[in-house]
Amino acid sequence: MIGVALAAFLLLLAAVYLMARPYLAPLPEPEDLSVEQLRADRERLRAQVRELDADFETGKLAREEYRRLRARRLQQLEGVTRRIRELEHLEDGVEPEPAPPRLEALDRAVEDRIAERKRLLAELEARSCPTCATPIEPEDRFCRHCGAALATAEVKDP
């Protein structure tokens, strides 16, 4: 009987403690919502890039469509990542830990290549038919709309 009473009392005590604690102890810091949102965006964009790759590799996406979509995603990804870094700087007030030099160099090289590819793709993407101004795909030899012959610009794969 005493044991039961003691258990009941302890239960009550624990319940009250759980409900009262937020008023007594400091709260866990919530993540900044906008950073959180951005991270979610980044996660989604990455997943989309991965998905695009898989779709392309398994032949579910035409090459030109794949390239255009991927370039767009990478661009968005870059923007989101930059904003996350900015916000994190603001929050911490400290520089992020520099990556080891080897990685840094690799980073730069890769970033350069990405930028280069993106520039090329954007350029190609911006092309339109000289006759009717319909946008054309990089690999088109003839305009899809008016049939005019186009100067081919083969995309060179490095």
């Binding site: 890039v49 991965r50 790759d53 990542t81 990685l103 890769v110 590819r117 794969d157 490095p158």
Partner: peptide
């Protein structure tokens, strides 16, 4: 992969190319 986004993209880049 450590080293952030760039490296991760790098492996994907290789994949595309």
């Amino acid at each position: 992969p450590r080293g952030g986004l760039a490296l991760e993209l790098a492996s994907e880049e290789v994949e595309v190319v």
